[in-house]
Amino acid sequence: MSAKTADKIATGVIVFITGLIALALIGLLGYILFRGLGHISWHFLTSPPETIRKGGGIGPQLFNSLFLLVLTMVITVPLGIGAGIYMSEYAKAGKITSAIRLVVEVLSSFPSIIVGLFGLLVIVNKFNLGFSLLSGALALTIFNLPLMVRITEQGLRSVPVQQKEASLALGISKWKTIRSVQLPIALPIVLSGSILAAGRIFGEAAALLFTAGMSSPRLDFSDWNPLHSDSPLNPMRPAETLAVHIWKVNSEGLAPDATQIAAGASAVLIITVLLFNLGARALGRYMHNKFTASK
């Protein structure tokens, strides 16, 4: 076989594989949206679910998912970026550093159900935080931290060393150099890592079953004091998220329209993740341009 033919075949195979993957994704997305979009209405998005009657919504679940996302990101992002900076800029090569790196690698491929059980035993029971949004957020932090650490480390390592040298040679401290020269350049990578983490949080169910719980108390959406027990902002209340709700409705839903609700909720979940993605990217581009004055 001539080199030219081999090249043609290789190109063909690669294009075919890519096409197959794209087709599968588009098919899946289309199927979910096709089945679910019809069920989405303002009423569906805002009203509480019904147990046995028709016409329940997903209002509290959607709110819980978004709130949990914010809560988890508030804990995960600073910790992840901090540890990532340490691993990339401060840790000296050696046994301890490689041990930390190994642990991070292992943790990042941990099955989420195990994280959930760990959360149940340690966070919910031992620390007595109960089934609550905070427990859920902490479990998801365990689950997402390794990703954040790794991505931040990679992002910083991808910054040309000449940038760092140029700053240090001006008599600028290491910390200021990291903050004002290296991090802005690494920002797009750190941000895409955060988006990835956010997607995992939003779609996660297994780790939340045993930590954030499977029920949602009646929420009073006119009470925004986080200390009140039926306030939506109270982080100590149990909170069923959208992904958990889909699982529950699908497996043990009694309402006659359970299938439609699950389909509608799935579509909402996907659309929200998509919107979040686009929003974060736009924000990232804006921040990157602002810091680096590039167009």
């Binding site: 040309p160 000449q162 940038q163 040298e165 700053s167 802005p184 810091f291 680096t292």
Partner: peptide
Amino acid sequence: WQRPNPFHKS
């Protein structure tokens, strides 16, 4: 340095 290394700034 040998290669110009301006910051990614204005």
